[in-house]
Amino acid sequence: MRIATIYGSTRRMGNTELLVERMMKGIDHRSIYLSDLNIRPIIDQRHDEGGFDPVNDDFKEIVDLFLTSDLIIFATPLYWYGMSGPMKNMIDRFSGAVRDERYGEELKTSLQKMETIVVTVGEITLG
């Protein structure tokens, strides 16, 4: 099984990463840090005649991760009762990605089969 973890925290080795690393100890998985990527916020063009404009950023790395993984772990700290801003930007961008001809039906099919785990951390003490 190909497993990937997407970290939404802007702080390395924070509570979220420490918990997931403990949870995944001994399990092979790929880690992606959204703070290392340039993922632009979505401009909602769902109802525009031309659809979504192409965006020049690193979102293709996320799409490639979804196309090559069986299980995705979304790991985010809890900020103001919700996921982190980087995680929200990444998830919002899927509105355009599923309509993007570059990814076609392959992305839609992958998303339908994808298994996911969500890890949300408020504050923890690891002993």
Results as ranks from 00 to 15, higher is better:
residue 3 I to S: 15
residue 4 A to I: 02
residue 6 I to M: 02
residue 9 S to V: 09
residue 10 T to P: 11
residue 10 T to D: 06
residue 12 R to G: 15
residue 14 G to Q: 01
residue 14 G to H: 03
residue 15 N to F: 08
residue 15 N to M: 03
residue 15 N to I: 02
residue 15 N to K: 10
residue 17 E to A: 05
residue 17 E to M: 11
residue 18 L to P: 04
residue 21 E to V: 04
residue 21 E to H: 12
residue 21 E to C: 06
residue 21 E to D: 15
residue 22 R to V: 03
residue 22 R to N: 10
residue 25 K to P: 01
residue 26 G to D: 12
residue 26 G to H: 05
residue 27 I to K: 13
residue 31 S to W: 02
residue 31 S to V: 10
residue 31 S to T: 11
residue 32 I to V: 15
residue 42 I to Q: 09
residue 43 I to R: 11
residue 45 Q to M: 02
residue 47 H to A: 11
residue 48 D to A: 00
residue 49 E to V: 00
residue 53 D to H: 01
residue 54 P to T: 03
residue 54 P to E: 05
residue 54 P to K: 07
residue 54 P to N: 03
residue 60 K to V: 15
residue 60 K to I: 06
residue 61 E to K: 15
residue 63 V to E: 06
residue 64 D to R: 13
residue 65 L to M: 15
residue 67 L to D: 00
residue 70 D to Q: 14
residue 72 I to D: 08
residue 72 I to F: 06
residue 75 A to R: 12
residue 76 T to I: 09
residue 78 L to M: 14
residue 80 W to A: 10
residue 87 M to V: 05
residue 90 M to A: 13
residue 90 M to R: 06
residue 90 M to N: 03
residue 92 D to S: 00
residue 93 R to H: 05
residue 94 F to A: 00
residue 95 S to Q: 09
residue 95 S to A: 15
residue 96 G to Q: 01
residue 98 V to D: 07
residue 99 R to D: 05
residue 100 D to F: 06
residue 101 E to C: 02
residue 102 R to S: 09
residue 102 R to F: 03
residue 102 R to I: 04
residue 103 Y to R: 13
residue 103 Y to L: 09
residue 106 E to R: 15
residue 108 K to D: 10
residue 108 K to M: 05
residue 109 T to K: 13
residue 110 S to I: 11
residue 111 L to V: 14
residue 112 Q to R: 13
residue 113 K to F: 01
residue 114 M to K: 14
residue 118 V to R: 09
residue 119 V to G: 07
residue 124 I to D: 05
residue 124 I to M: 12
residue 126 L to T: 10
residue 127 G to W: 03
residue 127 G to Y: 10
